[in-house]
């Protein structure tokens, strides 16, 4: 799914999304993100939605590019997203 980017887009990082907030992955430092996450579909331009946050605040549960996965906030912090209106 391709989302049209809003002109007044809001940039943030993945760990700061709220439940059910959607965004598009913008960019990240390739050295800080494991290859595995990319291979699972976490690539610039792909849609992302935050589904749940674990009861103790970490990890988070995401849907990226149709794949449901869970990562820790320390990793999510490295990934820039643009919120979708």
């Amino acid at each position: 799914m391709q989302y049209k980017l809003n002109l007044n887009k809001v940039s943030t990082t993945l760990d700061l999304l709220k439940r059910n907030e959607k965004g598009v992955i913008a960019d990240f430092d390739m050295h800080k993100v494991p290859l595995k996450l990319l291979e699972m579909g976490c690539l610039p331009g792909n849609a992302v939605e935050l589904l749940e946050v674990a009861p103790l605040g970490d990890p988070i549960y995401l849907c990226i590019n149709d794949t449901h996965l869970s990562i820790r906030k320390e990793l999510a912090r490295e990934i820039q997203v643009e919120l979708v209106g």
């Binding site: 494991p34 595995k36 996450l37 699972m40 990890p59 549960y61 794949t67 449901h68 996965l69 869970s70 990562i71 820790r72 990793l75």
Partner: peptide
């Protein structure tokens, strides 16, 4: 350490 896990249906 990093942690990536799929949440299957």
């Amino acid at each position: 350490s990093y942690f990536v896990i799929e949440m299957p249906n």
